[in-house]
Amino acid sequence: MKLHIARLQEAVRRMVEDRGPYWAPDPSDVHLADRVAALREAGGTDTAGRSAAGRYLAEVIVAAVALANSYGIPLQQAFNEASWPADLTEGSLWPERPLPLPQAVARLEAAAAPVRRTLAFDRSDARQGSDPSVVALRRLLPGLLTAAMAGFASHEELTDQLVRLLESTRSMDRAAEESEFDPSRAESVRIIRPVQMETFCPFAQKSVLWGPPAYDEDRSFGDNMKASLPAVRRFLRIQDRDVIDGFVYAFPTRVFGGTFDDLTQLFRDFVEFLHRNLTEAAPAGLDPAIAADPEWFFVLEGEECFISVFAPCYPHDHSRYMNGVEGHFLFMLQPEAAIVRVLTKDDYHPRSEAIRQRFRDGFQRYPLADLEIDRFLLPLRADDPPVRWYELAPTR
């Protein structure tokens, strides 16, 4: 069997899709700490101890790979950047004398500690940049994975444990009650997928998106938005290290109505809530006079963000067409950090113009408004004047 990190990553993706987050109900950093502690206790030299240790090592590996999937980290690239072979049968990973298990556990503990610290910081309320010891997961996960692999005598032994572990999940019930919501598997991420696949934007298909918990129609707009804050804050603070391309909100039209006027008012309320809760200007709210300034940009917790609005009321020849998706308004936050990762400052304007030309070539006109704030919610027809949604009074 050819053991390759990219194939393992795809296998774990399928398992999580089929059964739910592997480490449920524990948060990922708690799960890692628990598995390492269990490994330390089971790390005897007898057959039973070695067998249990192999299981725990495999669980650490699967949990680390699932984390990479959640954060959109291509592990083959991360391994290459760390100068580790992506082919897990490579001889350099398997010395003639395997590391004794106690030493392997100590190495694993050292590799897991910064991963847990980064995950805990992402969920915390600490100010961005307040902990200089926090490191990007894409730089940490290869070390964690290779440390766990060091506890095996060979890649054949590792493969056997991984096969048995993945097979064992067939009998697991789908995780129904998770203590940690996984934003990479949000309902809104599923809803927007057809738009991702069909849009003329060349970067959309491979974009990694997060979202909030599904909209609860039994709760108010404000309560639903409050429930989204932990996930969106985590998304924003990640931009300093690992980059997720967008954060998508999905609002059901059966709750808010489906007309363009309904969309406009909802978007005004949406931006007002984010502005009051995620900017230093709170509780002042969005000032239309300031927002209409040519130098204005939407900044949430220190991250400059763009918002793309998609809605079923946009026609087929519109750049914000939903490609058949019905029943929801979609608001996607796109940090500038994610945009300049693919459109560098040197070629930003020519490449962004080239993208708009792709839309025009596909019979979807995509004019560019003069003001940043007029580029979020586009009018129904390309020739219509900008939508002054920010001049409306908030209602929620």
Results as ranks from 00 to 15, higher is better:
196 Q>C: 06
200 F>S: 15
203 F>L: 00
205 Q>V: 07
208 V>M: 03
209 L>T: 11
210 W>H: 13
212 P>S: 08
214 A>K: 10
214 A>W: 07
215 Y>E: 10
218 D>L: 09
224 N>R: 04
224 N>P: 03
224 N>F: 11
224 N>W: 05
225 M>C: 10
226 K>D: 03
227 A>K: 07
228 S>W: 02
228 S>N: 03
229 L>N: 14
232 V>P: 10
233 R>I: 05
234 R>F: 04
238 I>W: 06
239 Q>H: 04
242 D>I: 05
244 I>F: 11
244 I>E: 06
245 D>V: 11
246 G>Y: 13
247 F>G: 02
247 F>E: 01
248 V>W: 10
251 F>P: 10
251 F>I: 12
252 P>E: 00
252 P>M: 06
254 R>F: 01
258 G>K: 11
263 L>M: 14
268 R>C: 10
268 R>G: 08
274 L>E: 13
274 L>F: 07
276 R>A: 13
279 T>E: 15
281 A>N: 12
282 A>V: 14
284 A>M: 06
286 L>V: 12
287 D>S: 13
288 P>L: 13
289 A>D: 12
289 A>V: 05
291 A>L: 01
292 A>D: 08
297 F>C: 14
298 F>L: 13
298 F>I: 02
299 V>T: 03
299 V>S: 13
301 E>K: 15
302 G>K: 14
303 E>F: 01
304 E>S: 12
307 I>D: 04
307 I>Y: 03
310 F>A: 00
